[in-house]
Design a protein around this nucleic acid. Structure first.
Length: 355
DNA sequence: TATGCGTGGCC
DNA sequence: TGGCCAAGCAT
């Protein structure tokens, strides 16, 4: 077993020598910490970084964020994924302003009541903004620590959380929670990586149980086998006089609160393939579409979306003055957040390819 | 406790 | 290439 002093001091020493220069490591401002933690949920640093800069530039204080329009938040979040984070971040800012005059509570129980803040983010704020004596358990920690001590316990359960929490609290140097937690996550991100782990340069190699047993790839213990569902989307792009029809996804489903074109979803591949270009009401248009773009596949974590775009040079009557749909000018399209899947076709619409 | 939620990078 | 993976949370 690693001695208390060995693990913490070796880890922190490694961190000081090898850490990346990331902007949120230069601040203890709880608002900036909050922003970075929400953005980095299930997201790599490289992907989240530009969004962090965008948000602190557009909303330099929690008050700016709280009083922003929800549409502005979505607009900035566009392309980052997991869009409920944007909504909850906004709600959280409003709650902090109304309940705490824009300051942050410095205890776990109050933090976790805020929208979008769960056990990890609450602890992260306590550690990084207030240097409280808490430990963070995220994917990096589960991986690094389960390998080091060969902890054969299914991760992301209340039991494993308890085990890891207790173990790490034992090693946490008092009043160094800020640096200790950054260090352990950085080690997981840079050395004890999911694949191609850098055991050759790992400063804990001689003490790593799973390395000694040649079973590193068996940790962390995860539940696997997510089942992917195939879905079949036909989008109708109606363009007339530089205007087109869009609609907001209001149902509880992927891309909630983002925009799209009028959609017909088929239940199966055969339905998708055999269907003429019709909508749910089976309406057929007398005119053939000007363009049909097929075989677009978009991969999500739990779903494969097969899509095609059917483009017409007119707007049917039932889409005009219809509350479920919105008629906008092509040059306004950037004011609305769309799923990344639509980027290509939107670009083509904007340059007038389908006029 | 189990499931759904995006996107991009990696091999 | 398809599957896995990344600083979780809400329900």
């Amino acid at each position: 077993m690693l001695k208390n002093f060995d693990f913490s001091s070796n880890l922190i020493h490694w961190y000081e020598e090898n850490k990346r220069d990331l902007p949120w490591r230069h601040t203890q401002n709880p608002y900036f910490i909050l922003l970075s933690e929400i953005i980095l949920q299930q997201t790599r640093v490289q992907q989240g970084l530009p969004y962090y800069y965008k948000f602190i530039h557009n909303f330099p204080t929690i008050f700016d964020l709280a009083k922003a329009e929800e549409s502005e938040i979505y607009q900035l979040w566009q392309g980052l994924g997991y869009y409920s984070r944007a909504k909850n971040l906004h709600l959280c800012a409003k709650q902090l302003v109304s309940l705490y005059q824009g300051s942050f509570p410095e205890n776990y129980n109050d933090l976790i009541k805020l929208s979008g803040i769960g056990p990890y983010t609450a602890s992260a704020i306590l550690a990084f903004a207030f240097n409280k004596n808490v430990v963070l358990i995220d994917g990096n920690v589960y991986r690094f620590i389960s390998r080091l001590w060969s902890i054969n316990e299914l991760i992301n359960t209340s039991k494993s959380l308890r085990i890891f929490n207790e173990l790490l609290l034992h090693y946490l140097p008092k009043n160094q929670s800020n640096i200790f937690n950054q260090a352990i996550m950085e080690y997981g991100a840079l050395i004890c990586t999911p694949k191609q782990m850098k055991c050759g340069i790992c400063v804990f190699q001689s003490q790593c149980i799973s390395f000694k047993n040649n079973e590193i790839d068996q940790f962390p213990v995860k539940k696997k086998n997510i089942i992917k569902k195939n879905r079949y989307f036909t989008y109708f792009v109606f363009i007339e006089n530089q205007q087109l029809i869009i609609s907001k996804r209001v149902v509880k489903d992927i891309w909630q609160n983002l925009f799209e074109f009028p959609l017909s979803e088929e239940e199966s591949l055969s339905d998708f393939e055999k269907s003429e270009f019709y909508r749910e009401n089976k309406l057929k248009y007398s005119k053939e579409p000007n363009f049909v773009i097929t075989n677009k596949k978009h991969i999500l974590t739990h779903q494969n979306i097969f899509s095609r775009f059917v483009i017409y040079d007119f707007i049917p009557k039932e889409f005009k003055n219809n509350q479920k749909f919105k008629q906008i000018f092509i040059n306004q399209i950037d004011d609305y957040p769309f799923p990344v899947m639509m980027n290509e076709i939107i670009q083509q619409i904007k340059i007038g390819l389908y006029l």
